[in-house]
Protein backbone atom coordinates (compact mmCIF):
# COMPACT_ATOMS: atom_id res chain seq x y z
CA UNK A 1 0.00 0.00 0.00
CA UNK A 2 2.74 2.45 1.01
CA UNK A 3 4.63 1.13 -1.97
CA UNK A 4 1.84 2.14 -4.34
CA UNK A 5 1.64 5.58 -2.75
CA UNK A 6 5.36 6.22 -3.10
CA UNK A 7 5.28 4.95 -6.69
CA UNK A 8 2.54 7.42 -7.46
CA UNK A 9 4.49 10.24 -5.81
CA UNK A 10 7.56 9.27 -7.87
CA UNK A 11 5.45 9.22 -10.99
CA UNK A 12 4.04 12.67 -10.25
CA UNK A 13 7.49 14.09 -9.65
CA UNK A 14 8.77 12.50 -12.87
CA UNK A 15 5.96 14.09 -14.90
CA UNK A 16 6.62 17.49 -13.34
CA UNK A 17 10.31 17.05 -14.28
CA UNK A 18 9.25 16.13 -17.83
CA UNK A 19 7.02 19.21 -18.21
CA UNK A 20 9.85 21.35 -16.84
CA UNK A 21 12.24 19.76 -19.35
CA UNK A 22 9.81 20.76 -22.11
CA UNK A 23 9.59 24.34 -20.83
CA UNK A 24 13.39 24.55 -20.48
CA UNK A 25 13.73 23.26 -24.05
CA UNK A 26 11.50 26.10 -25.32
CA UNK A 27 13.69 28.67 -23.54
CA UNK A 28 16.78 26.91 -24.93
CA UNK A 29 15.47 27.11 -28.53
CA UNK A 30 14.50 30.77 -28.16
CA UNK A 31 17.88 31.57 -26.59
CA UNK A 32 19.80 29.85 -29.41
CA UNK A 33 17.82 31.94 -31.90
CA UNK A 34 18.30 35.13 -29.87
CA UNK A 35 22.04 34.52 -29.50
CA UNK A 36 22.47 35.22 -33.26
CA UNK A 37 25.12 32.53 -33.68
CA UNK A 38 26.49 33.18 -30.17
CA UNK A 39 27.35 36.81 -30.77
CA UNK A 40 24.90 38.13 -28.15
CA UNK A 41 26.27 37.33 -24.69
CA UNK A 42 23.07 37.28 -22.57
CA UNK A 43 21.16 34.95 -24.91
CA UNK A 44 24.28 32.76 -25.31
CA UNK A 45 24.59 32.25 -21.57
CA UNK A 46 20.87 31.55 -21.35
CA UNK A 47 21.19 28.92 -24.13
CA UNK A 48 23.97 27.08 -22.27
CA UNK A 49 22.21 27.22 -18.90
CA UNK A 50 18.90 25.96 -20.31
CA UNK A 51 20.62 23.24 -22.34
CA UNK A 52 22.07 21.85 -19.09
CA UNK A 53 18.79 22.29 -17.20
CA UNK A 54 16.93 20.43 -19.96
CA UNK A 55 19.40 17.53 -19.93
CA UNK A 56 19.14 17.25 -16.16
CA UNK A 57 15.34 17.48 -15.95
CA UNK A 58 14.96 15.00 -18.82
CA UNK A 59 17.32 12.50 -17.22
CA UNK A 60 15.37 12.71 -13.94
CA UNK A 61 12.05 12.25 -15.74
CA UNK A 62 13.20 9.31 -17.88
CA UNK A 63 14.31 7.32 -14.84
CA UNK A 64 10.60 6.74 -14.18
CA UNK A 65 8.74 7.51 -17.40
CA UNK A 66 9.04 5.23 -20.44
CA UNK A 67 11.64 6.71 -22.84
CA UNK A 68 9.39 6.65 -25.93
CA UNK A 69 6.48 8.37 -24.18
CA UNK A 70 8.78 10.82 -22.40
CA UNK A 71 10.57 11.89 -25.58
CA UNK A 72 7.25 12.24 -27.43
CA UNK A 73 5.83 14.63 -24.83
CA UNK A 74 9.11 16.55 -24.45
CA UNK A 75 9.69 16.93 -28.21
CA UNK A 76 6.08 17.99 -28.73
CA UNK A 77 6.24 20.69 -26.06
CA UNK A 78 9.58 21.99 -27.35
CA UNK A 79 8.53 22.15 -31.01
CA UNK A 80 5.05 23.65 -30.52
CA UNK A 81 6.31 26.03 -27.83
CA UNK A 82 9.24 27.35 -29.85
CA UNK A 83 6.97 27.92 -32.87
CA UNK A 84 4.34 29.77 -30.81
CA UNK A 85 6.66 31.82 -28.60
CA UNK A 86 9.15 32.36 -31.44
CA UNK A 87 6.48 33.94 -33.59
CA UNK A 88 5.47 36.23 -30.71
CA UNK A 89 8.94 37.10 -29.38
CA UNK A 90 10.76 37.55 -32.69
CA UNK A 91 7.70 38.53 -34.75
CA UNK A 92 8.28 35.57 -37.07
CA UNK A 93 4.81 34.97 -38.42
CA UNK A 94 4.36 31.70 -40.28
CA UNK A 95 2.30 31.50 -43.43
CA UNK A 96 -0.69 29.16 -43.33
CA UNK A 97 1.16 26.66 -45.54
CA UNK A 98 4.24 26.70 -43.32
CA UNK A 99 2.12 26.24 -40.18
CA UNK A 100 0.45 23.24 -41.83
CA UNK A 101 3.73 21.50 -42.73
CA UNK A 102 5.16 22.33 -39.32
CA UNK A 103 2.16 20.61 -37.73
CA UNK A 104 2.76 17.56 -39.95
CA UNK A 105 6.41 17.37 -38.84
CA UNK A 106 5.58 17.74 -35.15
CA UNK A 107 2.79 15.15 -35.35
CA UNK A 108 5.22 12.88 -37.21
CA UNK A 109 7.94 13.07 -34.57
CA UNK A 110 5.47 12.56 -31.70
CA UNK A 111 4.02 9.53 -33.54
CA UNK A 112 7.54 8.22 -34.20
CA UNK A 113 8.57 8.49 -30.54
CA UNK A 114 5.37 6.81 -29.39
CA UNK A 115 5.94 4.01 -31.91
CA UNK A 116 9.38 3.50 -30.32
CA UNK A 117 7.88 3.11 -26.86
CA UNK A 118 8.62 -0.30 -25.38
CA UNK A 119 5.90 0.18 -22.80
CA UNK A 120 3.15 0.91 -25.34
CA UNK A 121 4.20 -2.05 -27.50
CA UNK A 122 4.22 -4.34 -24.49
CA UNK A 123 0.80 -3.06 -23.38
CA UNK A 124 -0.63 -3.80 -26.78
CA UNK A 125 0.65 -7.33 -26.96
CA UNK A 126 -0.82 -7.84 -23.49
CA UNK A 127 2.48 -8.59 -21.81
CA UNK A 128 2.03 -6.20 -18.92
CA UNK A 129 -0.91 -5.61 -16.66
CA UNK A 130 -0.19 -1.98 -15.81
Amino acid sequence: MTNTTSNQANNGRAWIALLLAGAFEIVYALSVAGSEAFTVLSWSISAIVFFLLTLYALSVALKTIDVGIGYAVWAGIGAVGSAVFGSVLFEQSLTLGQAFWLAVIIAGVIWLKLASSEKLQADESGLTAS
Binding site: A29, L30, V32, A33, Y71, A75, G78, A79, S82, A83, V84, G86, S87, F90, Q92, L94, Q98, L102, I105, I106, G108, V109, L112, K113
Partner: peptide, 16 residues
Protein backbone atom coordinates in the same frame (compact mmCIF):
# COMPACT_ATOMS: atom_id res chain seq x y z
CA UNK B 1 15.27 29.99 -40.31
CA UNK B 2 12.41 31.10 -38.09
CA UNK B 3 13.09 29.51 -34.71
CA UNK B 4 9.93 27.35 -34.70
CA UNK B 5 10.63 26.01 -38.18
CA UNK B 6 14.39 25.47 -37.78
CA UNK B 7 14.10 23.97 -34.32
CA UNK B 8 11.30 21.56 -35.30
CA UNK B 9 13.08 20.34 -38.43
CA UNK B 10 16.27 19.86 -36.39
CA UNK B 11 14.76 17.84 -33.56
CA UNK B 12 12.44 15.81 -35.82
CA UNK B 13 14.99 14.84 -38.46
CA UNK B 14 17.34 13.85 -35.62
CA UNK B 15 14.51 11.68 -34.28
CA UNK B 16 14.20 10.01 -37.68
Amino acid sequence: FDVGVGYSIWTSVAGV
